[in-house]
Simulated assay, not measured.
Amino acid sequence: MFCDSKPLTLFCFPCAGASATTYIRWRKRLPDWINVEPVELPGRGSRITERLIDDYETLVDRLSDELSGALPANYAFFGHSMGALLAYGCAHRLRDRRERSARALLLACCAAPTRRNEERLARLQTDDALLEELKKMNGTPVDVFEHPELLRMTLDLLGADVRICASFRPFDRAPLDVGLHVFGGLDDEIEEERLAAWSIETSAAATLEMFDGGHFFIRDRESDFLAKLRNLLRGFAPFAERESRRAFS
Rank of each mutant, 00 (worst) to 15 (best):
R93Q: 12
A206S: 15
P42M: 03
W33Q: 08
A108S: 13
V182P: 05
I48N: 05
S223A: 14
R115C: 13
F2M: 01
M153G: 04
G159K: 08
C165R: 05
R169W: 14
L155H: 02
A111L: 02
T202K: 03
D224G: 04
A174I: 12
G184I: 01
L106Q: 08
F77V: 04
A166M: 02
A87L: 10
A174L: 13
H80L: 02
R62K: 10
Y23Q: 03
T126Q: 08
I24C: 11
M210W: 11
E119D: 15
I164N: 00
S249R: 13
A112S: 03
T154I: 02
A196C: 09
P238C: 07
P38V: 02
L232F: 04
A160N: 03
D172H: 12
C165A: 13
A87Y: 04
F168N: 00
D143H: 07
A197Q: 03
R120E: 15
A240L: 00
T21M: 11
Y56E: 01
G179S: 12
A122R: 14
R234Q: 15
E193I: 11
F248R: 14
I190R: 06
I48G: 01
D172P: 03
M153R: 10
C90S: 11
D172M: 15
L157V: 14
N35S: 12
K135W: 10
G235C: 10
L229E: 05
E193W: 13
F236E: 15
E191Y: 09
S5K: 10
R152D: 11
F145M: 01
G83S: 09
